[in-house]
Nucleic acid binder design. Structure first.
Length: 434
RNA sequence: GGAGAGGUGGCCGAGCGGUUGAUGGCACCGGUCUUGAAAACCGGCAUUGACGCAAGUCAAUCGUGAGUUCGAAUCUCACCCUCUCCGCCA
């Protein structure tokens, strides 16, 4: 294993063996995900790599044996010059082979980091997003005796949202919350955190929101999605696109105790996304801003528990929306839609009546051992052996679209917005924003 | 940013050019003893890769990378991280 320049030190070589032995499975996975990676190129480079390993290792064996002979000769005060001369030549040859080998290892590793996780059998196989499966819906879409207005109109009119002025201080696609809008955002954050901490048993973490390349390569956003991230070039660190990165990377290179699993973490953080490739899409209001707030949930579990823990996590996210009394649906994503690191993913979408559409507000993924392998997070079992943990992450939930959904679902004819009951204690007695 | 000290197996901690993948302790697993447990004693206990049906053989790994050497945990250089002191700063 030779770590790449970024300080990434995960155990990706395990992957290569699996890929070699399950080439067709991987090929199908790439196809199902609509991924164009050239698997044959990878397999070919791996074969070259292994040939070089074999050659180099044979020579190293000889070097080790003869070095011991030299030590023995010297001990007996005998002449070892001839052998030393021969070893010098072998040493040069080894160096040459290792150099070649390094080139292939780097190529293989670079490509391995681009192989996505293998979906769970319960995931619908399709390259068409239409084949996402609606699992359940909750709540009733509100009916208005007036034409409901979109959140950007409501927010601007109430003076709680400023969607234009941010271009003066940052650029397009950034939002400013003002007055009771800022307070509502803060109320949502606190409400969600308290729910997950006090009722669902998560431990609150307040992490760095700048992360290094190794950590974010471990969670899988790199190397594939580098253009979607902001980067601090001078230090090669990145503002996080989601708190999943620091929360999952928290235990990088650690061996956990079995009795300590599962681990539940939650954190509020802002999230930063360049949204490259989506210019002109959802440009209005809060739908696709480059900085948004999110409360995130992360779990580290034993492999046999991850599916059940995943379902529980989805319910934890659903409860947020239920308590806010917003209509939503749960979607099981098909193969082309699930994230790079995920083997199964549910999206929660909240109804936005003025736009007559669903807004994706949470994504709950089971990543299996994919991230754990890249981050080298294991746990020690009763028999003393170590095994990779499973990692899960889910939004609990994303704020911007929830904020938008509240404005649209709770709007009244006079332009005011009723504060959802559960948020009232967090709003200092304000029950209507007007 | 400057000056020092240090980074060794799950943890602690020896080693400072030639069977050292690495003494020892703790933890963990198995056993003896015990009514049971503890203690004591005995044994086991790193990871990854290549080859192999397998048993296994070989290679690599002592922060990371490069160098010196026939041979490096041990010597040299660069970088990263941790700690202490100084400076700067919210």
């Amino acid at each position: 294993m030779s770590p790449c320049l970024c300080g990434y030190s995960g155990g990706f070589m395990i992957d290569m063996k699996f890929i070699r032995e399950n080439a067709e499975l991987i090929r199908k996975n790439l196809q199902d995900r609509g991924n164009k990676l050239n698997l044959d190129e990878l397999l070919g480079m791996d074969e070259e790599r292994r040939k070089l390993i074999k050659k180099a290792e044979e020579l190293k064996f000889k070097r080790n044996v003869d070095s011991e002979k030299i030590a023995q000769l010297k001990k007996e005060k005998k002449d070892a010059d001839a052998l030393i001369k021969e070893m010098k030549e072998i040493g040069d040859e080894i160096k040459k082979l290792d150099g070649e080998l390094g080139v292939y290892e780097k190529k293989v590793n670079d490509m391995l980091l681009l192989i996505p996780n293998i979906p769970d059998p319960s995931v619908p196989v399709s390259t068409d997003p239409k084949d996402n499966r609606e699992v359940r819906t909750w709540g009733k879409k509100p009916e208005f005796d007036f034409q409901p207005r979109p959140h950007w109109d409501i927010g601007e009119a109430l003076g709680i949202l400023d969607l234009g002025r941010a271009s003066k201080i940052t650029g397009a696609h950034f939002a400013i919350y003002k007055g009771l809008g800022a307070k509502l955002e803060r109320a949502l954050i606190n409400f969600m955190l308290d729910l997950h901490i006090d009722k669902h048993g998560y431990k609150e973490i307040w992490p760095p929101i700048l992360v290094n390349r190794g950590c974010i390569t471990g969670t899988g956003q790199l190397p594939k999605y580098e253009e979607d991230m902001y980067r601090c070039d001078l230090d090669d660190i990145f503002p996080i696109p989601t708190a999943e990165v620091p929360l999952t990377g928290f235990h990088k290179d650690e061996v956990l105790e079995e009795k300590d699993l599962p681990v539940y973490y939650t954190a509020y953080t802002p999230c930063f996304r360049r949204e490259a490739g989506s210019y002109g899409k959802d440009t209005r209001g809060l739908l696709r801003v480059h900085q948004f707030d999110k409360v995130e949930m992360v779990k580290l579990t034993k492999p046999e528990d991850s599916d059940a823990e995943h379902e529980k996590m989805v319910q934890n996210a659903e409860e947020v929306i239920q308590l806010l009394k917003l209509p939503y649906r749960v979607i099981l994503l098909c193969t082309v839609e699930i994230g790079f690191s995920a083997r199964k993913c549910y999206d929660l979408e909240i109804w936005a009546p003025a736009q007559n559409r669903w807004l994706e507000s949470s994504s709950c993924s089971n990543c299996g051992d994919f991230q754990a392998r890249r981050l080298n997070i294991r746990y020690r079992k009763k028999d003393g052996k170590t095994e990779l943990v499973h990692t899960l992450n889910g939004s609990g939930i994303a704020l911007a679209r929830t904020f938008a959904a509240i404005l649209e679902n709770y709007q009244q004819k006079d332009g005011s917005v009723i504060v959802p009951d559960v948020l009232k204690p967090y709003m200092g007695g304000v029950d209507v924003i007007k």
